[in-house]
Design a protein around this nucleic acid. Structure first.
Length: 411
RNA sequence: GGGAGAGUGUCCCGAGUGGCAAAGGGGGCGGACUGUAAAUCCGCUGCUUAUGGCUUCGUAGGUUCGAGUCCUACCUCUCCCA
């Protein structure tokens, strides 16, 4: 179905990663004849990345697999400015120490997907703070700013420029500059990103042509939503993070296990590295058999992030919990002191386990019959847990609904 | 610079013009049905030490027994004219 000649573009196209490409033929040609270097920018406002970032990460993964060089660019410099595109809240400005901490957490994730230099690969991790922090404002205006004409700037937004707009504009210029700088430093010729990044990437291409007569390319991925139209990876409860200390491998596995039928094939292509014919076989499963495909999806996707062993353990725990009804000791566990356990109200216990966010919510869930202690529905909100509630294994199993379980263990 | 309008339950949208913990959606969570799916139906969706107490309608003051609602100032956003 695709006419690409290079492995790289072929794989991305077949698996559904491509939304737009600038000058596809020229890029295809280059990717076939030599190793190209490409980058994707990541924001480091948090200590982890969530599922929303998974798609770009997979693009870098395939880039490396098909023989090219990926660069993960951390926005250490731009984060110091704060991102003006989000509304008020995300505009917080972080200190250098916080950014440094975040970078460490994020780096750990990339290590699972890319082989960096020193670990037998050629992937690079760059930080735009390296060049942005030392920029001289006057020089920058002279060398870079002049390429952004007033006309062009006006075409982006309203005539009236508020302070805020100026910051937003600067942000765009800085992102464009990143591309040019990376091109100069590493020979990087391709920037990838989500479809919302198209404008910024193209600005970078433009700037590259003006400043150093470089031929640069853009490739964007489609915005991934579930079949029901929801954005991925964000629930009211919180984002689905990739770091194990924020979202356990078990919960991560469960997230994928609960994928809607209509998304299974697409997600297998995007978020696992299974061969396409294998995916085709799984996608052909009908009715309840598609659950087998979901399990494969969950295990493979979890293995990418948390490793094969953790994925298998999560699959095993799930099987025992859901299919055999026994409780496996691998469920998420919350430790609680013996003194506290001696006399704790159910409401508090569920809050401590993190299954509900307040005692008020616990109360409501009890009214709706949604809470269970050791598989027995809680009917009395004044119920008190004591050591007598411990099962033979010395734990108490708390459940919210049918799917979410936490073990309470005396410390 | 001049003119018009808007900011509501800390997920989003959005009614509300003196009695309000505040209509209605979406989303989310729980229940039923299923296949740990979707669709559908039902319940819930400020906090709490709970027949009570406390905190919420951009921010700060004011009027009033009582303010999301009226008055004043300020902040932010959108649109129109320069």
């Amino acid at each position: 179905m695709t006419a690409y000649k290079s492995d790289f573009l072929n794989v991305l196209a077949e698996r559904g990663f491509i939304h737009q490409v600038s000058e596809p033929d020229a890029l295809d040609q280059i990717a076939r004849s030599k190793t190209i270097t490409a980058y994707i920018g990541f924001d480091c406002t948090a200590a982890s990345l969530h599922i929303g970032s998974l798609l770009p990460i997979m693009m870098l993964h395939w880039l490396q697999r098909t023989g090219h060089q990926p660069i993960a660019l951390m926005g250490g410099g731009t984060t110091r400015v704060g991102d003006p595109s989000g509304k008020d809240e995300s505009r917080r400005i972080l200190t250098d120490e916080m950014i440094g901490e975040n970078l460490k957490g994020i780096r750990a994730i990339f290590d699972k997907f890319l082989k960096f230099e020193g670990a037998g690969g050629n992937a690079l991790m760059a930080n735009n703070a390296d060049w942005l922090n030392s920029l001289n404002y006057i020089d920058f205006l002279r060398d870079v700013g002049r390429h952004f004409s007033v006309n062009r700037m006006l075409s982006f937004d309203s005539v009236k420029m508020r302070l805020e707009r100026q910051q937003e504009l600067s942000f765009m210029i800085l992102q464009a500059y990143d591309f040019v700088e990376l091109n100069k430093r590493t020979g990087c010729v391709l920037q990838m990103g989500g479809s919302d990044q198209w404008g910024n990437i193209v600005s970078g291409i433009d700037l590259g042509r003006r400043m150093s007569n470089a031929q640069l390319f853009a490739l964007t991925a489609p915005l991934i939503t579930t079949s029901s139209g929801a954005k991925m990876g964000k629930t009211a409860a919180g984002a689905v993070w990739l770091n194990a200390d924020l979202v356990s491998p078990y919960d991560y596995w469960q997230y994928w296990r609960n994928t809607e039928d209509g998304d299974v094939a697409r997600f297998l292509k995007l978020f696992t590295v299974l061969p396409l014919d294998e995916i085709g076989r799984l996608a052909a499963l009908q009715g309840s058999e598609i659950n087998e495909a979901k399990k494969v999806l969950a295990t493979e996707a979890t293995a990418m992030v948390h490793g094969r062993a953790a994925a298998d353990a999560a699959a095993d725990t799930s099987r025992r919990t859901f299919e055999e009804g026994t409780h496996a000791e691998n469920l998420p566990t919350v430790e609680i002191s013996g003194a506290e356990l001696a006399n704790i109200g159910v409401l508090t216990a569920f809050v401590r386990a993190g299954l509900v966010s307040s005692t008020g919510e616990a109360r409501r869930q009890i009214k709706g019959g949604g809470l269970k202690v050791n598989d027995a529905t809680v009917t009395d909100e004044k119920m008190v847990l004591t050591a007598a509630a411990l099962t033979a294994d010395g734990i108490i199993k708390l459940s919210l609904g049918k799917k979410r379980h936490v073990l309470l263990k005396p410390a």
